[in-house]
């Protein structure tokens, strides 16, 4: 099991961002849905080991991230794309991806090939030597994806990965997600339910810091039959579950 979470809680002052989440996941693409402020990003940041939980237990890739040695091992095997991707404008695409490959402590000999592969998989081959300051928002998002997958992660955490991508890129990205999900655990936090329907094998819906639904996209769709609002069946399931949770 790559992700084992029990009673995970995180407070920011009086605000409880994550309230006792239980979650287990193995290889595959796991969708994390929810409205703004549901706690998705906080949960992902805790799974990325950059935010410590206030309470609860978490094991990632069979290790306890609370201890330094295991945490470092987890980070070597982790890919993370934050919601607000920062970047160094003067770096080229290749340099930026290589920089994070080196920070992830990849063996130097493996880095050039891994960087080239990640850049190609993110469909940035023709922009490999471009400075980041010259790229569009969608391209920068793909750079973020490239740096997240450069170390061939066993646990890949993507926070709003398709934000800024055009429809064609989103279709290609979903294919990439499915491919990655065959070998690794991919957790995708998104607002876009169509991404979940197309790429995820399992989905969780968060509201007010708690997971209020857990199942397959088909099960979520089924919850919307005769209920909810939305154009697509999955959206109706999403709104039906949220309405039920809020009531």
């Amino acid at each position: 099991m790559n992700v084992e979470i029990a009673g995970l809680t995180r407070h920011f002052g009086r605000n409880q961002a994550v309230a006792g989440v239980d979650l287990e996941a193995g290889p595959g693409v796991f969708g994390l849905l929810g409205p703004n402020g549901a706690g998705k990003t906080s949960l992902l940041r805790m799974m990325a080991t950059v935010l410590s939980p206030s309470a609860g237990k978490m094991r990632l890739l069979g290790r306890d991230p609370g201890s330094y040695g295991p945490r470092r091992e987890i980070r070597r095997r982790l890919g993370y794309l934050p919601q607000n991707l920062g970047y160094y404008p003067s770096f080229t695409v290749v340099e930026f991806v290589e920089y994070f490959a080196l920070l992830k402590e990849m063996p130097a000999a493996r880095v050039p090939a891994a960087v080239a592969a990640a850049v190609e998989r993110a469909d940035l081959g023709d922009k490999a030597r471009a400075k980041l300051r010259t790229l569009s928002g969608g391209m920068l998002r793909r750079v973020g994806i490239a740096q997240a997958i450069v170390n061939d992660p066993e646990l890949l955490l993507l926070d709003e990965p398709t934000a800024g991508l055009d429809p064609e890129q989103r279709v290609a990205f979903r294919a990439l997600l499915r491919d990655l999900g065959e070998r690794a655990t991919v957790v995708v936090s998104t607002h876009l339910v169509e991404d979940v329907g197309a790429a995820c094998t399992e989905v969780a819906l968060m509201n007010a810091g708690k997971i209020v639904f857990r199942g397959t996209p088909e099960q979520l769709t089924a919850r919307g039959e005769g209920h909810g609002v939305g154009d697509a069946p999955l959206e109706r399931g999403y709104s039906a579950v949220l309405t039920e949770a809020r009531s």
């Binding site: 940041r45 091992e73 980070r75 993370y80 934050p82 920062g86 080196l102 992830k104």
Partner: peptide
């Protein structure tokens, strides 16, 4: 980029 850097092993 703090989160990005913090999430790395080094």
């Amino acid at each position: 980029t703090r989160d990005l850097v913090d999430a790395t092993a080094r």
